[in-house]
């Protein structure tokens, strides 16, 4: 059986766990813990090692989705999780510009791990205060060739669209390299 892996990363509380939950065929194996630091009490629990979701294609092929912990103190996990990834999604909370710089740093870090295609999911587009994907692209200084996609992580169709766009980008890269 071939296992293909994709990583879902992004700043703390960007919606990575929810993103995987919305699409995974299994209950997400989340390694969550109660928040201890007062400055991070934006939610009750956080991912401390990884989230794990699965999409079975057939008997021979499975896609694994790994969600990274968003906090910097778990950065050592990022490289481990990114080993062998086919591509990655950077989930950004569009309503919290205070996390954009962190998102940019995470994106740059993951790009140094592996030269794999990636897309940016501008999450929480259903919220009134959400920055538009176009504004996010400028704010995060995203290359015009990289897709910045509107996303609502609680909506399965929206998550499907992000994953499909990432896969299309992977195909385009393969075509470009003559695979």
């Amino acid at each position: 059986m071939q296992i293909v892996k994709m990583v879902v990363t992004g700043p703390f509380a960007a919606g990575k766990t929810q993103f995987i939950r919305s699409i995974s065929e299994i209950d997400v194996v989340a390694t969550e813990a109660k928040i201890s630091r007062p400055e991070e009490r934006i939610k009750d629990e956080t991912t401390v090692a990884m989230d794990f979701g699965r999409i079975t294609v057939d008997d021979d092929l499975v896609l694994y989705l790994f969600g990274t912990p968003g906090q910097r103190r778990f950065e050592f996990m990022w490289e481990i999780l990114s080993e062998g990834m086919l591509g990655f999604v950077v989930v950004v909370d569009s309503t919290r510009p205070e996390t954009f710089r962190e998102a940019r740093l995470i994106l740059d870090t993951f790009r140094t791990y592996a030269p794999t295609p990636y897309v940016v999911a501008a999450n929480k587009q259903d919220m009134e205060d959400a920055w538009s994907p176009e504004d996010l692209r400028i704010a995060l200084r995203i290359d015009p060739a990289v897709k910045v996609l509107p996303c609502v992580a609680t909506d399965k169709e929206s998550v499907k669209n992000v994953l499909l766009e990432l896969l299309y980008s992977i195909l385009e890269t393969m075509d470009g390299e003559g695979e």
Binding site: V4, V57, T109, L167
Partner: peptide, 25 residues
């Protein structure tokens, strides 16, 4: 700055199968 990894060797057909599956979901 951390070290760089290699990209996995995955065939085009695999990606196409993933696309088809996700579309069905």
């Amino acid at each position: 700055v951390p070290p760089t990894q290699r990209r996995p060797a995955v065939k085009r057909s695999i990606v196409q199968r993933l696309i088809d599956r996700i579309r069905e979901l």
